[in-house]
């Protein structure tokens, strides 16, 4: 019995190791390729380990391709989107969870309806709205449409409903106003859903490429994925080392955030999945 259990565990580990290697293999290939020269990649496409590792590809990104601007744009857009979602979704979440006001049900129903609408449906008319507001090729055009999310409101409202009313009533008796209750009681208690919301919005903003590709029309407003996508289908399409280096730059921040916060990611998937 003992022997069989061990053999089974060994088989499980063997399977997991093989599957795990296959899964991360593209990332390893990416990382190794990014430190090879174009000459080495063409001469020896079979090779795994770089024979003479070089940071030239990264250097070209920094000096010739304006990596700094793209990186800054990505950080800027993602930063505003995360902060906006945390603030605005928790504000409306508080109102929906704990305050009474006319129109509350209608508002909540509308939010739940939009939660089910796929992005492809609103994409074109959203572009028309942004164009009519003269926000094409501006930071505002990249940021404003994503500052709020129905899913974020849902997450915050669900969590805030579980905060006991007695806490709020006690604060009201002590003369605290709603703003004070929100900032001193609700926000400090809402760490877990805010962590989930922050991670989910950072992830989708950092990886978003279709909207920024359509809205950012001058190079000054490109985010990282837009720049990488345009180079990889355009003038640099065959410069593999360079493109792999760009991919490493796009992927590294999100993978680091993911590994550091993976417990929260998993919870995010569970909550977002079970909406």
């Amino acid at each position: 019995m003992m022997y069989q259990l061990n053999r089974r565990q060994a088989l499980t580990y063997a399977f997991l190791v093989v599957a795990g290697c296959l899964t991360v293999l593209p990332f390893v290939w990416m990382l190794l390729g990014s430190v090879k020269s174009q000459g080495e990649i063409l001469r020896d496409p079979d090779g795994w380990l770089p024979r003479s590792p070089t940071l030239d590809n990264y250097h070209v990104w920094l000096t010739e391709l304006d990596l700094g601007t793209y990186l800054l744009n990505s950080v800027l857009v993602a930063g505003f989107v995360v902060l906006g979602n945390l603030l605005f979704c928790s504000m409306v979440g508080y109102a929906l969870a704990k305050l009474e006001f006319p129109g509350k049900r209608v508002l909540f129903t509308l939010i739940m309806v939009t939660l089910m609408v796929p992005g492809v449906v609103t994409f074109v008319p959203l572009f028309v709205v942004v164009a009519r507001l003269h926000l094409v090729d501006t930071y505002a055009g990249l940021i404003l449409p994503f500052l709020i999310s129905p899913l974020g409101v849902f997450l915050m409202r669900q969590f805030m409903r579980s905060v006991p009313d007695s806490l709020i009533e006690a604060a009201r008796l002590d003369g605290a106003g709603e703003v004070r209750i929100f900032t001193r009681i609700m926000l400090p208690l809402s760490g877990p859903p805010m962590a989930t919301l922050g991670i989910l919005t950072f992830l989708s903003s950092w990886n978003n490429f279709l909207w920024p590709m359509v809205v950012a029309q001058s190079q000054d407003h490109y985010t990282l994925p837009v720049a990488l996508s345009l180079y990889s289908t355009g003038e640099k399409a065959t410069d593999y080392g360079l493109l792999l280096a760009g991919s490493v730059v796009v992927i590294t921040p999100i993978v680091l955030v993911f590994i550091a916060l993976q417990r929260w990611f998993v919870q995010g998937v569970a909550t977002a999945g079970l909406k």
């Binding site: 593209p26 990886n207 490429f209 760009g246 991919s247 796009v250 992927i251 990611f265």
Partner: peptide, 8 residues
Amino acid sequence: VTSIVAVA
């Protein structure tokens, strides 16, 4: 979690 553009 990784960008489709980079993965592509």
